[in-house]
Nucleic acid binder design. Structure first.
Lengths: 67, 67
DNA sequence: CTGTGACTCTTAGTCCGTC
DNA sequence: AGACGGACTAAGAGTCACA
């Protein structure tokens, strides 16, 4: 499985566990809403600093987002 | 700890376990040797596809490189 | 609320070296 | 063997209007 898609699925799963919309999560992570959408669809190839920005509000590690 | 530095330390540790020079590893991972040097020093902010390219020849997962 | 194309600006990533 | 610099090209970061 492609790693970008795997990341996207993990982000989406953790975000839904928090009960957040993409918009609400985008605000928490301080990342643009459409960028979150792209990430969840595996349409982006983000850097590890982005992974960390995503991980923090979700309460998980950067490592977990790539599992 | 900064995530780039953590990645660098992990890469260096796994690479040395394999007994590879940066150059030999660069060849295995199909990544430029100077880029490997930068990564290990935490001087770069790589994308997740690079993380995967680093992980494969080391015999670990992308997730493990960020632990 | 979310997906998508398009856009600008910045930086990832390559390749040439030298120390 | 590895650190580090300069210059370059490809691609990511970040944003918007609209569906």
């Amino acid at each position: 499985m492609d790693i970008c898609k795997r990341l996207g699925e993990n982000v989406r799963r953790y975000r839904k566990e928090k009960g957040w919309s993409q918009e609400a999560f985008a605000h928490e992570a301080d990342i643009h809403r459409t960028y979150i959408s792209d990430i969840e669809r595996g349409a982006r190839n983000p850097t590890i600093t982005i992974i960390e920005k995503l991980a923090r509000p979700l309460g998980v590690t950067a490592s977990q987002l790539l599992e």
